[in-house]
Amino acid sequence: MLSNENNLEKSVRFVARHYKPGIFNSENSLEKITGERKRFILRPFVWSGVAAVAVVLIIAGTIFLQPEQGKTLTADAFTTISVLPDETKITLQPGTTLAYDKNFGKVMRRVSLSGNASFEVSPDKEKPFIVHTPAAEITVLGTIFDVVSNENSTQLEVHSGKVNFAPADFPVSFICTKEMKANFDVEQKEITISSTESSCTINQTENRLAFSNSALGEVCRILQQYYNQPVSLTENERNIRLTSGFIDKNITEIIQIINLTLDTHIELK
């Protein structure tokens, strides 16, 4: 009986240590596999459902990386399926060109493309998979996401794993995880990141920051990057939620407002 009790106590601690709300939930995940977002679809005739594919990239731009001795893959009249040297599977829609240079896979896995393609990125933490688009650079740390991009905006939706979203010429970058969406508008210099529970918008043109139910830890990280000044926060205040908007305020004012409203102890270092 005693050993049973110990095992149970161990199990409780193990589960408590790893517990995160909203994951390991069969209801949320079944559709992903049987539904429209199914992975591993490599047969062209199934393509008709765009969402049926791991990653969709639509880029109406030019190729950024000119391959030297790399390779340029082109799909002319038909949907073409290719496998990159790292075993990443790509489905290219008609008219799409994807290029990678001779250094592909040495340190990083960089590709650029024009048109519309789907990827199932082969996981390799050492060598991030990077997709160049006109408005942003997307670093794949996990596996499944959608990107819709043109010259004026880039939208990202992550279905699984982690993706680093770094808008061009913008001070803040974001790691997006499951169910998170990011949208960057080049002209407005405005980024919106939203998850199922929170969202945040940063508009550099108007110097406007808006948070909705954002965790304070994340808010401080954003402030720190946006104003390029170190911000400190006590560990136990990281998960306090903030809903607030700041227009044309400096970082000292913002911190003061948050501390007064939430009774917290954020400091500028």
């Binding site: 790893h18 995160k20 994951i23 390991f24 939930n25 069969s26 995940s29 079944l30 699984s160």
Partner: peptide, 24 residues
Amino acid sequence: FNLYYRPLCLYALRLLDDTDEAED
């Protein structure tokens, strides 16, 4: 799926010690 999904996640978690990877 409904029957085995979560237990399998916990089983994988024991091996991988990372919730995201286990679920993947």
